[in-house]
Write a protein that binds this DNA or RNA. Structure first.
Lengths: 190, 190
DNA sequence: GGGTAACGTTACCCTGGAGTAACATTCTGA
DNA sequence: TCAGAATGTTACTCCAGGGTAACGTTACCC
């Protein structure tokens, strides 16, 4: 009489597990989330989680890696190769805010991890991810300090913006573009 | 044969405990820090920690409360009542950066907690603290979104700045003042 | 159609670390 | 001077939750 669970192909099951993991991690953080609970939410039992991901930390790492890749892909998507730096920045910001809006859980975990890392090894990966974005902004602005500040402004605004009733994406983008004009190399006329 | 520990008055002992707690929490986070370890670092045993603070969460909360108060006091200190908004902001930023530099552990914990809260009840307190700062900035800038973005820029820059070899405080302040000019109500001439 | 690999489960083990009981040693003040 | 209130310690209890062993069940493929 055991075996209540429907059989599913590995990729599908993994998606369910990662979804449940993301929900748990984003709302309760790594430590308050238990493997039993994540398993239950994914409609499966604990040993499956371990067979597919190895350990709780590995599950967390897998979730972060996928989420990070989605973020990078999302922000890279807009093809704006031969447009002005300003236009490219604007497109990037819109893409970023869109990603954040559509992947709240992922963004929450990613953002939390970047300031309060759970694990040293994971911290390095997150730092690398953020580093790539900072590097991009640094070449854009010509100053690392400014790039770091701008990244912080963007992250903070994004998180706040999510908590607003109905986020008007263009307003958020404008606020950031406005800031970008403050000390950037490109035009100050807008 | 027991009783190896030197006797100390309560306030002194508390300071030692809070210092050890801060070191542990800032370097390893709440969950990876154990009460045994904090006790040892404070030169005392676990039951003392419990007698003085009640529970691990209460110890953490006490540490955060004190740290938050120090931050507020530090930033409030510069008496600039009847100066221009710009001068007041500059003084506030300098005071903030000075605080951060002199209380690295406290800042690390505070900052981490604001993005990845350990506990719902504590999260509210931190949110209230940040809310007060945002409110101040909002009246200064006349726009909440901008205030949130600016706060994020400041926090991010402060944390990055700490990791630099020898932080020149005025440069960091200038970067932020420059950003503040972007869309603020006060002069755009600087 | 049967061997094996993958999917899935129940029922357990085991440790880290939060929290406490019970006891020893000083300090203080009436 | 001695009662009781602090400061302090040793030596536990106890359990949440990470991790696993052992055992069904279904699918696939030669």
């Amino acid at each position: 009489m055991p075996t209540s669970g429907q059989r599913l192909a590995r990729p599908d099951r993994e998606r369910l597990m990662l979804g449940a993991a993301g929900d748990a991690f984003s709302t309760q953080g790594f430590h308050r989330s238990s493997m039993d609970e994540i398993a239950r939410a994914a409609g499966v039992t604990k040993p499956m989680l371990y067979r597919y991901f190895g350990s709780k930390e590995d599950l967390y790492a897998a979730y972060l890696r996928i989420t990070g890749r989605e973020l990078i892909d999302g922000v890279r998507a807009p093809e704006t190769r031969d447009q002005s730096p300003e236009a490219r920045l604007r497109a990037g910001l819109r893409a970023f805010l869109t990603y954040v809006e559509e992947h709240r859980a992922g963004w929450t975990v990613l953002h939390g991890e970047s300031t309060a890392p759970t694990d040293a090894h994971i911290a390095r990966e997150i730092a690398a991810l953020r580093g790539r974005i900072i590097a991009m902004l640094t070449t854009l602005f010509g100053d690392e300090a400014l790039a770091v500040a701008f990244a912080g402004a963007t992250e903070s605004l994004a998180t706040w913006w999510l908590s607003q009733p109905q986020p008007p994406i263009d307003e958020a983008t404008d606020v950031l573009m406005n800031i970008a004009h403050a000390a950037s190399g490109f035009d100050r006329t807008a």
